[in-house]
Design a binder for these strands. Structure first.
Length: 458
RNA sequence: GGCUGGGUAGCAGAGUGGUUAUGCAGCGGCCUGCAAAGCCGUGUACGCCGGUUCGAAUCCGACCCCAGCCUCCA
């Protein structure tokens, strides 16, 4: 049975969907004013893996990942660029989709956008005011009355008094309590705005997710996820808004993805120490990046370094080498799927699941020495399990020989191999080795097997 | 200061009260013209100090250290 670590209870818990066989999953997606960096990639890949696994285990999954397409940073960036807001967000939404596709992230079932959910946002705010959980201030902002929601702080493990002691609480004359947060922000001249009973303005950051998630999935759903940094205040505030507005429990299981780090430090926009997905993809194959992300548990920190990426590449190469030249087949009962599932059932333990993939590879390699066909069913199993992680779906040849972006073209390599075959027939080992060394210097590895020479790019 | 996570062999990274994680690198062997790949074998690992236990790296307590949150951030 699947167990998931629930950030709300801080425990691993058996996971039971509210409706048997159906899982409703909401993930906080991007604010689209810049390219995705590796932190975004980790969240996308992480929940893609979660959705794939839940489906592989027979659940019908409704996966929602929102897009925040209105907020202060977007407005600011559009002004800096002298760009229309909609053009800006459209541009980065497209870029995000390109990055996601490259990383093997399947599209979510729905990608709701904040600007397309104004009626739902407004009605939720109205409900909160009605019930005394929110109030319009003199400056025409609407605030959430944090003291009124008794369980406030349960997700982040903070109490209001502790938060008050914390350093950075900005004092705002308009607020009843400094910890109250904004639901509706009145518009300054020239800013994008929507009409509301409290004056023209735009939604605060948190309310959109409450409105979109409950609209798409109902007031009470199974899993809500996002990066670790959203736990407070974003998710805390979502709970306060949603439960106060609906009077129902909001989410059963909260999942938070650990940070990507660079030199032991969180990779983040504010620190400026981030790599965008597209920068990384110039250096490393997208599947290698995906392997790297899934190679550590989703809650652990993930250290970005060339050493670690190269390690991921070596490991993936081993798996693809095991699959190389295997004929198509269907898996037979071999026990590997059960082992794989046992690892995944333990809070999506992808490193453990990947270890099973390597056991399979070893078995395949043993069998293939004598009989390629005998190894085929295990190869099929390896591919099928890889698919649950979004890995190993390319032709081994394609992965191993890479693309021809730089270095020698395939034809040049083939030609040199022909020369070398000739030299070997003449037992001219010096010439044969020279060609092999030359190719190696250019990043091409030769392998003489079964009277045939094959090659791959390093 | 409060709250969350975490400290595992050369590196990365799971896991567990007593018996192999796994990958990369290393060492020995097989294979090979030689390699590569592969196979077999190979490691005094579990931050520190106490305690519980027949036995702890795994449970308990204290301590040290690291990262994160408490302000926008995935």
């Amino acid at each position: 049975m699947l167990h998931i670590y629930n950030s709300l209870t801080k425990k691993k818990e058996p996971f039971t969907p509210i409706t048997p066989g159906k899982v409703r999953l909401y993930v906080c997606g991007m604010t689209v004013y810049d390219y995705c960096h590796l932190g975004h990639a980790r969240v996308m890949v992480g929940f893609d893996m979660v959705a794939r696994y839940l489906r592989a285990r027979g659940n019908q999954v409704t996966y929602i990942r929102n897009i925040t397409d209105i907020d202060d940073k977007i407005i600011k960036r559009a002004q800096e660029n002298g760009e229309d807001i909609n053009a800006l967000t459209a541009r980065f939404i497209q870029a995000m989709h390109e990055d996601a596709t490259a990383l093997g992230v399947l599209p979510p079932d729905n990608e709701p956008r904040a600007t397309l959910h104004m009626p739902q946002i407004l009605s939720m705010i109205a409900k909160l005011i009605e019930q005394g959980f929110a109030y319009p201030a003199k400056n025409k902002d609407v605030y959430y009355r944090v003291r009124k929601f008794l369980p406030y702080g349960s997700l982040s493990g903070k109490t209001l008094d502790e938060l008050k002691i914390g350093a950075g609480v900005e004092v705002d004359e308009e607020k009843e309590d400094p910890l109250d947060f904004v639901l509706w922000k009145s518009a300054k001249p020239g800013e994008p705005q929507w009409d509301s009973p409290w004056g023209a303005g735009r939604p605060g950051w948190h309310i959109e997710c409450s409105a979109m998630s409950t609209t798409c999935l109902g007031n009470h759903f199974d899993i809500h996820g996002g990066g670790m940094d959203l736990k407070f205040p974003h998710h805390e505030n979502e709970i306060a808004q949603s439960e106060a507005a609906t009077g129902e429990k909001f989410v059963n299981t909260w999942m938070h993805i650990g940070f990507v780090r660079l030199d032991e430090e969180k990779m983040s926009k504010s620190l400026g120490n981030f790599f965008t997905v597209r920068e990384v993809l110039k250096k490393y194959d997208a599947e290698v990046v995906r392997y790297f992300i899934l190679g550590s548990h989703y809650r652990s920190p993930l250290d970005y370094s060339d050493e670690n990426l190269l390690g991921a590449k070596a490991a993936l190469t081993r798996l693809y080498l095991a699959l190389k030249d295997l004929p198509a087949a269907t898996p037979t009962a071999d026990g590997y799927e059960e082992k794989f599932n046992a690892a995944m059932d333990d809070d999506f333990n992808t490193p453990g699941a990947m270890a099973v993939l390597f056991e399979l590879a070893r078995d395949i390699n043993k069998l293939r020495e004598n009989n390629l066909a005998a190894a085929a069913p295990l190869g099929a199993r390896l591919r099928r399990l890889g698919d649950i992680l979004g890995l190993l779906q390319r032709k081994p040849q394609v992965f191993l020989q890479g693309d021809v972006a730089n270095g020698l073209a395939d034809e040049q390599i083939e030609a040199l191999i022909k020369q070398r075959v000739q030299a070997r027939q003449n037992r001219n080992w010096a010439e044969s080795d020279r060609i092999r060394d030359d190719l190696k210097a250019q990043g091409v590895i030769l392998e003489d097997t079964a009277g045939k020479t094959t090659w791959r790019r390093l």
